[in-house]
Design a protein around this nucleic acid. Structure first.
Length: 500
RNA sequence: GGUGACGUGGCCGAGUGGUUAGGCUGGGCUCUGCAAAAGCUCCUACAGCGGUUCGAAUCCGCUCGUCACCUCCA
């Protein structure tokens, strides 16, 4: 069964056929680093991480590009009075904009690593591509799809639509309706010829911190421009997959397509993938309206929304239990269920890897057939638009066989050695390489407390032995711990211990 | 107001015409010194109304409800 994916552009599932055989170019819109990454972003990047991992699993050579937006993302409406999010933050905190960027970018990276997402192959930053962005603005102007107004440059959506007929194709917007937009809160856009036009170069106000020289003004690039420039710079004018959150479909991605076509006549991506939103209490989790919980609060449990802390891996598993195009509602109950499911899956894998026998079925059995079937159904699930929920369900069905073998409820003579070995490799690969789930070592804090408890127990037992002058037992404990590089220290105020 | 999506059992969440999704929770059984784990098993479904069909959670229509986008957001 071939890989199918849901292409937002076509609004249906399509068979995936890369532009260049064996290779995939994938671009995903990354975060704007003006504040701490929140859980909704994480869901999107975890989703694309699994997509990236699965494409690699299928044998594709993938170039994964995910940008860092460090300029151009405006607070409020895109007229000349609007302020760049990062610039604004820098002013408020009295820091260099690049200090803001560095700080939140570092935080983003460390959070991504806690969720065990793979780094993209290229992580370009908008401020590193100002020259290319200016060139694209010029190309769009040269092609007649933009106009200059008071030092700012605007994309002419009406002209673009008249000539290319594709504006609104991705998002389903109808340009005539955008033209007659009557909402009163959108009326302060006097420099634009049409309400649907958007800025591609913005003249900086005197107080604006981030500014570059250009043929039109000292200013900064529009937000949509960076993705058009950086995706095609690293992946070519036409590449395979462009991804991002659902909420970027319009205007961001629609405008991106317009810019690329406006500049070089080619739509950038063959397949557009959009992840759905993470909800809390049935509503979109969103920083701006306070309906959100930070990853840190989830880890520690320090939030009225949860009864306890959840590990990054439990959260990752929670996200994988739903399909990436479905909304996912976060709740304490659901997280708790996911945590248990995650632990069980990891434990099952451990049990599986430890299975060993001396006698096997000599000919293929019905168990072999069932197991082979479940493995291929796992793959089919993933091939059906990366349906991780199905894949997890199938792995769980396989777990029945694994535990029965472990408990001797199913004899090893009912299974072929080759099938079990295949299952071992398959299970481990899926959990680790495709789903990106780490084992318990991720729960470092929990292990710490377990170790602590064990040590207290040993010390108590040793003290009992010492009280009874049972020096053999006492020394056995101390020496054995020494072998494990744990030092036992008998002081005046009792016994302490240390590692290493 | 425009556009789109969704409504599945106690909870989460797959599933687009006929077959058990799966996880968590609850009941029963097996195993077990006790407990845990594990296995087996049971219970509660497809928002409502109508239509198409031999047959619908799945297709069509209507009603009700929820959400998203249209403005920064993954």
């Amino acid at each position: 069964m071939a890989l199918k994916l849901y292409n937002s552009l076509a609004r249906k599932k399509e068979i995936f056929e890369p532009i260049h055989e064996g290779r995939v170019g994938m671009y995903v819109c990354g975060p704007t680093v003006y504040s701490d990454v929140h859980l909704g972003n994480i869901r999107t990047f975890v989703s694309f991480d699994v997509i990236y991992r699965y494409l690699k699993y299928l044998g594709y050579k993938v170039r994964y590009v995910r940008n860092i937006t460090d300029v151009g993302h405006l607070e409020g409406d895109a007229d000349s009075n609007a302020e760049d999010k990062i610039s604004q933050r820098a002013r408020l905190e009295q820091l260099e904009p690049m200090e803001i960027v560095q700080h939140y970018m570092n935080g983003f990276h460390s959070m991504m690593h806690r969720f065990n997402t793979l780094d993209p192959n290229i992580e370009p930053r908008a401020t590193g591509h100002i020259i290319e962005q200016i060139k694209m603005v010029q190309d769009i102007l040269d092609n007649g799809f933009a106009y200059i107004e008071n030092g700012s440059v605007y994309f002419d959506t009406l002209k673009f639509q008249q000539e290319k007929k594709v504006y609104g194709q991705l998002s389903g917007r109808i340009i005539e309706e955008l033209m007659t937009e009557t909402r009163t809160d959108l009326k302060n856009q006097s420099e634009k010829r049409h309400p649907s036009d958007f800025a591609i170069w913005i003249k900086a106000s005197p107080t604006h911190l981030m500014r570059w020289e250009s043929p039109w003004s000292i200013g900064f690039p529009g937000w949509h421009l960076e993705c058009s420039v950086m995706s095609t710079k690293y992946l070519g004018d036409k590449f395979d997959i462009h991804g991002g959150g659902n909420d970027l479909k319009f205007p961001h991605h629609e405008n991106e397509i317009a810019q690329n076509i406006g500049a070089c006549g080619v739509a950038p991506a063959k397949y557009w993938l959009h992840t759905n939103m993470l909800l809390m209490h049935g509503k979109k989790m969103s920083k701006s309206d306070g309906n959100s919980i930070t990853p840190h609060e989830l880890f520690t449990g320090d939030s009225p929304h949860v009864s306890k802390g959840y590990s990054p891996m439990a959260l990752r598993f929670f996200m994988l239990q739903a399909h990436y195009r479905s909304t996912l509602d976060i709740s304490d109950e659901a997280l708790s269920a996911a945590e248990k499911g995650y632990k069980k899956l990891m434990e099952t894998n451990k049990v599986l890897q430890n299975l060993a026998a001396t006698q096997w079925a000599s000919t293929p059995t019905s168990t072999d057939t069932e197991i082979e079937k479940l493995m291929s159904e796992t793959i089919n699930g993933m091939n059906d638009d990366f349906n991780t929920a199905i894949a997890i369900g199938k792995l769980n069905e396989l777990s029945g066989y694994i535990h029965k073998l472990a408990n001797k409820q199913l004899a090893f003579t009912e299974i072929s050695e080759s099938v079990l070995n295949k299952l071992k490799a398959f299970y481990a690969t899926f959990i680790t390489d495709v789903f990106g789930l780490l084992s318990e070592s991720e729960h470092a804090a929990q292990e710490e407390s377990t170790l602590d408890g064990l040590m207290q127990l040993l010390i108590t037992m040793r003290q009992k032995a010492r009280a009874e002058k049972d020096w053999a037992t006492s020394d056995l404990i101390r020496d054995a711990l020494g072998e494990l590089k744990i030092q036992v220290k008998d002081g005046k105020d009792g016994t302490t211990w240390s590692k290493g």
